[in-house]
Design a binder for these strands. Structure first.
Length: 103
DNA sequence: AGTCGCCACGAAG
DNA sequence: CTTCGTGGCGACT
């Protein structure tokens, strides 16, 4: 099981209505490779099953989606989050600390 | 083997 | 805002 697979396995455990961060995932893997976590997400092979939209930046900014840091793809990410009850405004997760999932 | 070039990032300036 | 460090991976040679 490579690095990417381990990242995906963790992402699958994020509950609905919660988010986590690249940094937290890296720490959970015993690594400081938060940037590599972003790479793993970018290579996410199964968009619906692996909820990459629940992974945001450590400062609460929504970040990117489907390989993009801005644009329509990111818009869909925000929409999905809203649909599961996560408040997003101005590209930021509201009540970030409250919805943050730390495994 | 090694190198090089990404990055949905983070910290510091 | 801007750099700068950064880890792991894929695509090369």
């Amino acid at each position: 099981m490579g690095f990417d697979e381990r990242v995906w396995a963790l992402i699958e455990r994020i509950p609905r209505g919660r988010v986590t961060t690249y940094k937290i995932i890296a720490e959970r893997l015993g690594s400081k490779a938060y940037r590599a976590v972003g790479n793993a997400c970018r290579r996410n092979p199964n968009a619906p099953k692996i909820p990459g939209h629940r992974v945001v930046n450590s400062d609460g900014r929504v970040g990117g989606y489907m390989g993009r840091t801005s644009g329509a793809q990111v818009g869909r990410k925000i929409k999905m989050l809203r649909e599961e009850g996560v408040e997003v405004e101005g590209g930021r997760v509201l009540n970030f600390e409250e919805v943050l999932f730390r495994f």
